[in-house]
Nucleic acid binder design. Structure first.
Lengths: 200, 200, 200, 200
DNA sequence: ATTTAATCGAGACGGTACGTCATGTCTTCGG
DNA sequence: CCGAAGACATGACGTACCGTCTCGATTAAAT
């Protein structure tokens, strides 16, 4: 009965007094998988543990909260990405980064996970900190793009880069969480252009 | 013991088969107070009821969910604002609206309450809907300003106004909730200018 | 699925803010039934609650521990008994009381329940107190029989009645819990006679 | 932090592939100490291991269960006794054995330990078996005394000796565990006399 | 004037998830 | 190869909120 859900392929070998890497993997995988399946609701610590074929205690031993598990699972997945392209043209780079951000957050397993993560972080200060650190790397990547553009003279020297970054991520999170507007490629293009050209 | 916290001044007179306005007030007041106080803890239905000296059923009779109570409590307080100025100059109007938004959300009772409300909305879909409706009026006011500007020719005709609105509120919520950047008058000015002039 | 076990016959009507007597009954009945079935092992709070069709909290609201539930269930069952016969002859009375004690504790639902109760009381001081009070009434009944006998001159005036009582209940509990000797009617007779006649 | 309690004096030298006697001692000592100290709390395997500065496995390698450790710890201490005197007079012998039993169980280190042990045995069937075996020697000693008395004609030939033994140990355990009556020398005398002379 | 009906405070209820604890098994690694 | 260390799966524990329910009282409206 339990196996029908977990499908971990049977017994994991014990690893003695060292952390069992296979268990870690099973937990992270199960967490991400459940998030993708269940649209974010009802992803319980117990559910994750059962799906991973793991005791709850093992989960609590290594992560402070359910959200921390999700975050690590997600961070792993997102490690590879972080494009930070360098075409030599700010407009192109900006469009690419923004579009990649928008697209990346909506692929099946990531979207619900990210949303759930935000929900959890809203209540769990510890997780909020972790998440802030995680997103920081994304912000840094975007800031690099802008800095390169400024050095090439594509931006006014006095421009507030942090504000520009926040305009991108602000729009992203705002629409991502509320869902009242699109986060498609056209929007990405329009947003990038707005930052560079403004509204005149 | 209960009175030490609620301080409703003792017994409320019954109002027979008509809704007891005093109870409604007590609930909203208690809700707002708790929203402001509870920095990290979650605001419980039971807590609100107890603080208001009210049965839980009274709460559920008049509001569909805990979130609805919280939102109404906050909305009452925020009723006044929604400036939507009309100086005849888009830049001035925009700066004014953005600055007012930034400032309004940080006044002592509103700031923490709004933050807690956002936290609650992250978990309570019903509240999320209500909050969306509530913020819609703010967005509409900003959109009006932009539309007037466009009609005066101060914006390119093809500009995506909704995106501009979301840039403002996106930045606002992003910084408001994460607290990693300022929401002062300079920022308001810079943001407004960015929307109009862009970064070249 | 749940109903297959609980068999409470469907929904219990709510009783508002007053304790639900039906729920109390269901809990006590379920507790005793499960004890009888499961030989005492694995009678979990959760199991009792589920079998009674009740939330765990309801159980904890009214009893301090699982053992307290069992005790109350058992005390109810034992209420009627408490023989304390009065044939006018001490030997007859004593034999009757002892035999009744032995027999009563071994009837299907009572035996395992009593054993489990003792197990629980070994760890739960609160329950130990309750149990002491419960058994006190049994001791008192036996003491009454002895006192009547002494008044009739069937016992030496200086005899330590409390010790006699403890000889009866000591043997009872000792054999009941360890199970190394019989607690049948012959034993009862022999024990009663031993107390009166001694070993010469 | 762990050492503050164990205070085993620091590192024990390893003994290679032979059983480490020092570890055995540390475990038994820790067990006895904890049995004596822990008045209400239960004595945990982990607690013993930590207090002895020992891994849990070392414990399970040499003893089948926690209870076995506790019992062995106690048995060692109680080795000496088992008097079984032979004055040639049953009454004297009986009084001596009973008084010794009562007194022995109340000496400072043994009393609380024995009580805790009984508590543990109530939950641990394995320990219960071991304890039964352990107490069997005590029962045998008493039975010997009685048998010698019977052979000397001081007891009716048909007397149920096992029942007499259980009257002694029944009273002992009953009062020892519940503490509602004294276990002093007078009681011992009265109990011995009761067994021989009875109550007329 | 009496009945009817709705509100109110109170809090019990069934339920879901939580995070902790103890058990007994297992494996690593230093000596 | 022993012994320490401690990770692991299991399963019970007791707590926190949720949203629903039923009281008994109180009082306004309908009769």
């Amino acid at each position: 009965m339990a196996d029908s859900e977990s499908d971990t392929g049977g017994a994991r070998p014990h690893t003695g007094r060292r952390r069992n890497e296979a268990a870690r993997r099973a937990i992270l995988d199960a967490a991400l998988r459940l998030l993708g399946e269940a649209e974010g609701d009802s992803v319980t610590v117990e559910t994750i543990a059962r799906a991973a074929g793991v005791g709850k205690q093992t989960l609590y031993r290594w992560w402070p909260s359910k959200g921390a598990v999700l975050l690590e699972a997600l961070a792993e997945r997102a490690q590879q990405a972080v494009p930070a392209p360098d075409h030599g043209d700010l407009r192109d780079d900006l469009r690419a980064v923004v579009a990649a951000t928008f697209a990346g957050a909506q692929r099946p397993p990531v979207g619900p996970a990210l949303r759930t993560l935000a929900r959890e972080a809203a209540r769990d200060p510890q997780l909020a900190v972790l998440m802030r650190e995680f997103t920081e790397s994304r912000r840094a990547a975007l800031r690099d793009v802008l800095e390169r553009g400024r050095e090439r003279g594509e931006l006014e020297p006095g421009r507030d880069l942090d504000l520009m970054v926040d305009q991108v991520y602000g729009v992203f999170w705002y629409r991502f969480l509320l869902g009242h507007g699109p986060l498609d490629e056209d929007t990405a293009k329009a947003l990038a252009d707005s930052l560079l050209t403004g509204g005149r």
